[in-house]
């Protein structure tokens, strides 16, 4: 379990989640988003947990993931979360101000991606002679979503960062991501 510090949220990414499709919203909306960003940054408790294995791990299945990892020596399973208080903040906003809820939700979606990026970077820095592949989550391509509980168990994610899934395979806290990426030995030819 490690902490990640996020000091600002990618607004361009947030606007994409809000459906602005490259259009710039007016200043009233932008400043409302900035206000929500401040509240969200005060609320999130970004955490991640990871394990490094070889690529023969039984949790690595399917053509897509195997293809991604084909040149890799190691596979990294990881899980990131913004914490339960983030869900509460977004849910509470839904009771009083749906506009705020919309912004908080989009900001949180952008933030969890940032946390994943940072986590991947921190993990990869432990292995300077390796380079990382992109990340791949259960539910992508032919990588089954129903592996989610086993992946979280493998990472001990419930105990270490408080992440679990319900019977519909919904992650709790909702703003959490689990994924796999590969570490490929750098060639110095």
């Amino acid at each position: 379990m490690k902490d990640i510090l996020i000091t600002e949220i990618d607004i361009a990414e947030t606007l994409t989640y809000l459906g602005f499709k490259g259009n710039i919203p007016d200043s009233r909306i932008l400043s409302a988003i900035k206000r929500c960003e401040e509240v969200l940054l005060d609320t999130i408790t970004p955490r991640f947990v990871y394990k490094v294995t070889d690529t023969s791990n039984p949790l690595i299945v399917g053509r897509d993931l195997s293809g991604l990892l084909k040149d890799c020596e190691k596979a990294v399973f990881f899980c990131c979360t913004l914490g339960q208080m983030t869900d509460r903040l977004i849910n509470s906003a839904g009771v009083t101000d749906i506009e705020e809820q919309l912004y908080l939700d989009a900001l949180a979606n952008a933030a969890i991606e940032q946390v994943c990026d940072k986590a991947q970077e921190i993990i990869t820095n432990v292995y300077p002679e390796y380079k990382k592949t992109t990340r791949f989550s259960p539910g992508y391509g032919d990588y089954p979503l129903n592996l989610q509980p086993q992946i979280l168990d493998f990472l001990d994610a419930k105990k270490l960062i408080g992440v679990t899934v319900n019977e519909s395979l919904l992650m709790i806290p909702a703003k959490s991501v689990s994924a796999v990426f590969g570490l490929e030995k750098r060639s110095f030819s």
Partner: peptide
């Protein structure tokens, strides 16, 4: 028509 986006619709509704 895609001239306005969801936040603007919600803002107006609010």
């Amino acid at each position: 028509k895609g001239k306005l986006f969801l936040p603007q619709l919600i803002m107006a509704a609010n």
